[in-house]
């Protein structure tokens, strides 16, 4: 197996987790920056449509590193898919595969289920709820909650902040509730 074939396999958690964790000291040491991604959404608001709202009136240009960082994530996603794509379909837990097939989800070629997340579905009720309402909840919730998985779960817990532990438990709880009790109804639409 060549090195490139080796890299193309899905990376196990014990490789990915420490690499993600290392983002914390890397950002701190290269520029004294706290790891956090959802803030980029706030900077986007501040830069594009501050509308005189105090929450968006700050010097967003000083935070431009954060926007550059998420641009990097976008490029990284592109490069990984172009040059390091796993040639095999995603392997998921059999129980999940059986369960999702009830809702017509059988295509595992993409990172999101192509049968739901596509342009044609955008204005169907299911597509609207999953792509537009889902995105809204992510943007509203992260800012109201003061951060997302990176800012709270990774950065916050790394620096032993108890509010971040509370937030992490709360978003795991919200996700558990949605995935098990509400999402089945949305998928059935």
């Amino acid at each position: 197996m060549s090195i490139i074939d080796f890299v193309k396999q899905p990376w196990p958690w014990y490789v990915a987790g420490p690499l993600i964790g290392l983002t914390v000291p890397t950002l701190l040491l290269i520029g004294n920056k706290s790891f956090g991604i959802s803030s980029s959404l706030r900077h986007a608001c501040a830069a594009c449509f501050p509308a005189n709202i105090p929450f968006f009136k700050y010097e967003w240009k000083k935070e431009i590193w954060n926007l550059v960082f998420v641009l990097g994530i976008f490029i990284g996603g592109f490069l990984a898919m172009q040059f390091l794509e796993n040639p095999n379909a995603l392997v998921v837990n059999e129980k999940l595969a059986t369960y999702l097939s009830n809702f017509g989800i059988t295509d595992y070629s993409g990172l999101v289920p192509n049968q739901i997340f596509n342009w044609q579905n955008l204005l169907s009720l299911k597509g609207f709820l999953m792509m537009i309402v889902g995105g809204f909840l992510v943007g509203f919730g992260t800012r109201y909650g003061g951060g997302c998985t990176s800012g709270h779960a990774i950065m916050g817990l790394s620096t032993l902040q108890w509010p971040s532990l509370v937030a992490t438990c709360c978003f795991m709880l919200g996700g558990y509730f949605m995935a098990n009790f509400i999402l089945p109804f949305i998928l059935a639409l």
Binding site: L129, M130, V138, G139, G141, G145, T149, H152, G174, Y176
Partner: peptide
Amino acid sequence: GAIIFGLGWAI
């Protein structure tokens, strides 16, 4: 906020 984010994350 975190609960709301969790709901969105799972969707």
